[in-house]
Structures are given as C-alpha cells and as structure tokens.
C-alpha cells in the first residue's frame, strides 16, 4: 500500500493556493529547513475575513499536502474561525496521515497562526485565538508530535 491516501497525494501533486501573495496583509513562516520542514503562508484580509491565502513549503509530501489543505480551509473564514482550525481538522480533511507524519499538520496549523499573528501585529488587532502563540518557537518540528493529542501517543518512535 502507498504511504499516503489519494487525497493527500492529490494535494501533494496538485497543491492548491501555491505561491506568495504580493503585498500580503499577513505573512507567517513557521519551522526551519534545519528542522526538516518550513512553511510560509501569506494572507489577504478584508473586513476581518480571509479572502485569499497562499503557501510555500519546504518539506515532505504530507507537509505540502497539509499546507495546501490549510489554505483551502482558511479562505472565506473570519480570522477567529481560521484561528479555530486545528491540526486534527487538517488531518481529518486529508482523510488521515500516517502517525509519524502528524507533526506536518501541526506545522500547518502553526503556519496559519503565524500569518494571522503578523496580520494582527500590522493592523494592531488582538485575537483570543493567538493567546500563547509564539511565532518564533524554535522546537524541532520533528519532535512536536508526541506532545500532540492527535497522535494518540502512538508515535513513541519520535524522540
């Protein structure tokens, strides 16, 4: 069996919203190539609604698919709604990811927040959903999965 399902492969091979918005209202990058994966999301906001979102990702197939689906989920949502998107939802929308790849969805979730964080900074707004979010968190993103409920503790291999 292939390691990813058809939906993941579709978003990987035909990523939606790939690119970068010029003069974006918010631009966030999360992760770093040294950690193995890095995502950048740019957003356009009108009346507190995300009207466009684009991504660029350095990472594996599920990282690219996760960022693709993340942008699809964001567009048309209010900022508060977008902040409510969880990595679990990203995984569900993709029809599931292998346990060892759950952290790629966590990264996408954080990239969404990083873009909105930047927008909030630029526009001087505050959002409850950003509380406690650190856009410069320096953890190794290959390490985060075990802290996440989504992996159900089954990814003990990730140390």
């Amino acid at each position: 069996m292939a390691i990813y399902n058809e939906k993941v492969m579709d978003h990987f091979m035909n990523p939606r919203n790939m690119g970068e918005i010029e003069n974006a209202d918010g631009k966030g990058t999360y992760g770093s190539p040294v950690c193995g994966d890095m995502m950048q999301i740019t957003i356009k906001v009108e009346n507190d609604v995300i009207v466009d979102a684009k991504f660029k990702t350095f990472g594996c197939g599920s990282a690219i698919a996760s960022s693709s689906i993340a942008t699809v989920l964001m567009v048309g949502k209010t900022i508060d709604e977008a902040l409510a998107i969880t990595n679990k939802q990203i995984v569900e929308e993709l029809g599931g990811l292998p346990n060892v790849k759950i952290h790629c969805s966590v990264l996408a979730d954080n990239a969404i927040k990083a873009a909105i964080y930047d927008y909030a900074q630029k526009s001087g707004k505050t959002y409850a959903g950003l509380e406690g979010f650190d856009p410069n968190a320096e953890e190794d993103h290959h390490d985060v999965a075990c802290d996440e409920e989504a992996c159900g503790g089954s990814c003990e291999k990730i140390k």
Binding site: G36, C60, V100, H142, K157, I158
Partner: peptide, 30 residues
C-alpha cells in the same frame, strides 16, 4: 538544495522511478 527528499522520492515514484533518500522525513524514526 531547497527541496526535501521524500517529496522528490514520492514524485519520482508517481512516474515509476524508485530511489531512496537520506531525509529524516522518510525514515520511520524521523
């Protein structure tokens, strides 16, 4: 440079080409 191995491996596989990678992303232990 600037791309990740598992993504290349998967794309090559879609075209029938089998290779391997040293990328952490492709190993079970990351």
């Amino acid at each position: 440079e600037f791309v990740e191995g598992e993504a290349m491996l998967l794309s090559l596989d879609m075209q029938g080409i089998s290779v391997s990678t040293g990328s952490a992303c492709s190993s079970a232990s990351l």
